[in-house]
Simulated assay, not measured.
Amino acid sequence: MTFNIGNQNAANINNVGRDQHITGGQTGIVVTSEQALQALAELRAGVKATRLDPVASIAAEKELRDIEADMSRPEPDRTRIAPKVERLTRVLLAAGSLASAGSALVGPLGMLAHWLGALGAPILDLLPALL
């Protein structure tokens, strides 16, 4: 027997040739482009409200501008955006902002990381367990 499976878009896809047993459930998070843009706007507001030192502020602003430019394209290239979001996360982490600002920064960063899919995994690994 042959299965021809075309494009698949879902949080979880299981193509199983025989038995499959899932224990503990299976979940997935799907973030739309509109939700990702909203998260970016929230992230910008959160960064603006956070008191960063001048060096971190300049670095964060550069990454935010670059992410916004890439996300405003008709078809955003997630492979270009992911490293920028990761760099921004590292800047905020080093400045102590993720711990002090809490969900104001962690929530939008998590949303962007989920929108990036597998490319967002390194970003999620950097975030405090506030998601």
Score class of each variant (00 low, 15 high):
Arg18Glu: 14
Gly107Thr: 15
Ile5Gly: 05
Glu63Ser: 13
Ala104Phe: 12
Met71Lys: 00
Asn15Tyr: 08
Arg51Val: 09
Val85Trp: 03
Ile5Ser: 10
Ile123Glu: 03
Ala99Asn: 02
Ala39Thr: 12
Ala118Met: 13
Gly46Met: 01
Ala121His: 14
Phe3Pro: 01
Arg90Glu: 12
Gly117Met: 10
Gln20Glu: 11
Leu93Met: 05
Gly6Trp: 05
Met1Ile: 09
Leu131Val: 13
Leu64Phe: 05
Asp125Pro: 03
Ser97Tyr: 03
Arg65Asp: 06
Pro108Glu: 11
Trp115Thr: 00
Thr27Ala: 03
Asn14Pro: 00
Ser103Pro: 01
His114Trp: 01
Gly107Gln: 15
Val30Gly: 07
Arg90Met: 05
Gly120Val: 10
Leu93Cys: 03
Phe3Gly: 09
Val47Phe: 02
Val55Phe: 12
Ala36Thr: 01
Ala82His: 00
Gly102Ser: 10
Leu37Thr: 01
Gln35Met: 10
Ser100Pro: 00
Pro122Phe: 07
Ala113Asp: 00
Ala45Leu: 09
Leu40Ile: 01
Gln8Asp: 15
Ala113Thr: 01
Ala60Lys: 02
Arg18Cys: 08
Arg80Asp: 15
Gly46Val: 11
Gly25Leu: 15
Ser57Tyr: 02
Ser100Glu: 06
Gly96Pro: 07
Arg73Phe: 07
Leu127Ser: 12
Gln35Val: 03
Ile67Trp: 02
Asp125Ser: 09
Thr32Phe: 08
Ile67Cys: 00
Ala129Thr: 07
Gly25Ala: 15
Leu119Asp: 08
Asn9Trp: 07
Met1Val: 15
Pro108His: 00
Gln8Thr: 14
Thr32Val: 02
Arg78Phe: 03
Arg18Ala: 12
Pro128Cys: 14
Arg65Ala: 05
Thr32Arg: 04
Arg73His: 06
Val106Arg: 02
Thr2Ala: 15
Arg65Glu: 06
Val106His: 09
Gly107His: 12
Leu130Met: 15
Met1Trp: 01
Ile29Val: 09
Ala82Thr: 04
Val31Ile: 14
Leu43Pro: 05
Leu109Trp: 12
Pro76Trp: 06
Val55Tyr: 10
Asp19Gln: 13
Arg90Gln: 13
Lys62Leu: 08
Pro83Asn: 08
Glu34Phe: 01
Ala118Gly: 01
Ala82Glu: 01
Asp77Gly: 04
Thr23Asn: 15
Pro108Ile: 04
Asn14Asp: 06
Lys62Trp: 03
Ser33Pro: 00
Gln38Phe: 05
Thr79Val: 04
Thr89Tyr: 08
Leu93Arg: 14
Ala69His: 04
Asn4Leu: 15
Glu63Asp: 15
Leu126Lys: 06
Thr50Ser: 15
Leu52Asp: 02
Leu40Pro: 02
Glu42Cys: 02
Val91Asp: 05
